[in-house]
Design a protein around this nucleic acid. Sequence first.
DNA 1: GTCGGTGCAAATAGTTTGCATTAAG
DNA 2: CTTAATGCAAACTATTTGCACCGAC
Lengths: 151, 151
Amino acid sequence: MDLESELRVHDLRVTTPRRLVWQVLSESADHLTAQSIFEKVNAVDAAVNRSSVYRTLSLFAEIGLARESKLGEDEASRWEPAHADDEIHLVCESCDSVLHHSGDVVRSLRSHLGDHHDFEARAVEIVVRGRCATCGPAPASESTSEPSPAS
Amino acid sequence: MDLESELRVHDLRVTTPRRLVWQVLSESADHLTAQSIFEKVNAVDAAVNRSSVYRTLSLFAEIGLARESKLGEDEASRWEPAHADDEIHLVCESCDSVLHHSGDVVRSLRSHLGDHHDFEARAVEIVVRGRCATCGPAPASESTSEPSPAS
DNA sequence: GTCGGTGCAAATAGTTTGCATTAAG
DNA sequence: CTTAATGCAAACTATTTGCACCGAC
């Protein structure tokens, strides 16, 4: 996706913070916190301020370049490039990885809600918490409410 | 659901804040913010402190009585009694109402992920934003998501 | 009487904002 | 040259925490 033209379309200026935030966002597949985006940006150009990162992220969200999601893992919002609008987040509670999956589930949910419930779905956000393929099936002995084994 | 016995099972004391928070939670079908729960509780017993409400809510979440969800409407978390674990939130962007819908969508999503993606789903959280039956189909002209580039 | 739970106030985390300055167009 | 965008610092919101006291058991 071309940041510059995307910005110009909206009569917005192409600035260093915007270029760097976009670079960080699109280079990492992960769901980054504003904080970590700031750190990465800051590592490249220390002059960029934290608030510019926040302002840039909100701006990107407004013009549809980025997307904010509160995955609920912790308190902070996570950011990612906006690609697919309907997307499932598979959060592995064991290894903390976040997989993406966009399939027909969203499509069928959409039509189901429209047909049977008169609800016109615009944005569908699905977060599934569980265990990914790598971490295998549920462990026999694990305290269910174990928040994070990472201590 | 019986708060007192639920607490006793976990060797927890039955206190005024806990009783009141539970009362508020179970009486209102809505998704309440901690703030509004505090207000309602406080209206009944002004001695109850805000932090007790927060502590109580986390406690309820831990023992499975309540459930926190970041609906993303605003910054604050929303709380509700824990009833159905798998539940769809239908958020109407027009009238701000939140409908609940727990059906087979979650069940089929679960099995789909298990069968085709080796992902063992534990908790499924679905938030659909759109327009509810009452508000009808999409309006022709509305400046809902106006990307306001600060004038 | 014991100690888990509370009220209070202060701290923290994440994010936002007012304003003077800078740099994109 | 104009004014959008930035850097900075301070403000704000939601939530958490340390500690002394209180009340459930």
